[in-house]
């Protein structure tokens, strides 16, 4: 489904200093992957690069989704292909309501006019599952949202937009048990044999709540080791230091 080949990336305002240095990754339908790594290893850069955030520039390598190169697509075109990304720190957008936002995003992605009744039933159903009050729909996007509310809102978007691949940037929320519970519940609701999940995290905590197929260790812009869920246990006990020399 997602194939990343020998990817090199640098930050737009820091030309020449590469953050990702030859990263390779394969994700197939039905799989749950976790990328772990110490601070500064390039975790957030990876998620942003997949979505072609103009802040990051790909200097080498390519990203394929369902066999098609997506490096040069705009973020919305990438979303339209069926990739979703949850933000670690979602943008606060005053003046735009959650309902307005969800509706616009859904119709842009499907390219169809929304059947309002059907759509709002669907959204409300998801909200109920996630334990979100209906009044959320009329609140301005992330304005005054608590950390948990922001997280729930990202997961609500995931369920509403129903992508093929969900990338969850959980770089910093590793130690917040509530956040982890929301995310893992969302993933359980979302996950089926035809879609895939990529979780990016710093800590091993989330793995206690989820069944994952692969764990990758990202150090210094490269994946240095891939294995099954048991790898997380090793990291939990020993930390990243043994991988850092590479």
């Amino acid at each position: 489904m997602l194939e990343i080949k020998n990817l090199y990336t640098y930050a737009e305002d820091d030309h020449g200093k590469e953050i990702l240095k030859g990263l390779n990754l394969n994700i197939n339908a039905g799989e749950v992957h976790v990328i772990m790594g110490p601070n500064g290893s390039g975790k957030s850069t990876l998620a942003n690069t997949i979505f072609n955030n103009p802040r990051y520039v790909v200097s080498k390598g390519e990203i394929l989704f369902e066999g098609e190169k997506i490096n040069d697509l705009k973020p919305n075109e990438i979303a339209k292909k069926g990739i979703f990304m949850s933000f670690q720190i979602p943008e606060v957008i005053p003046g735009v309501t959650v309902a307005q936002f969800l509706k616009t995003a859904k119709s842009n992605i499907t390219g169809e006019k929304i059947n309002l009744l059907k759509f709002s039933n669907e959204v409300e159903e998801n909200m109920e599952k996630l334990g979100i009050d209906k009044s959320y729909l009329n609140r301005e996007l992330n304005v005054g949202f608590s950390g948990g509310e922001k997280k729930k809102n990202e997961i609500l978007q995931l369920l509403t937009l129903n992508p093929k691949l969900a990338i969850l940037d959980e770089t910093d929320s590793g130690l917040d048990v509530d956040a982890i519970k929301i995310v893992s519940k969302g993933i359980k609701l979302f996950k089926n044999d035809n879609n895939a999940v990529l979780i990016i995290t710093h800590s091993t905590k989330i793995l206690e709540y989820l069944d994952v197929d692969y764990v990758h260790v990202l150090v210094n812009g490269k994946i240095v080791l891939s294995s099954d869920a048991s790898l997380a246990k090793t990291i939990e006990e020993n930390g990243y230091s043994s991988y850092m020399e590479n």
Binding site: K74, I78, F87, E91, A105
Partner: peptide, 15 residues
């Protein structure tokens, strides 16, 4: 604001 724009676009909304 380019970050706001990126956020909305990453959720599928056109520029």
């Amino acid at each position: 604001d380019s970050e706001k724009l990126f956020y909305l676009m990453s959720k599928g909304i056109s520029e």
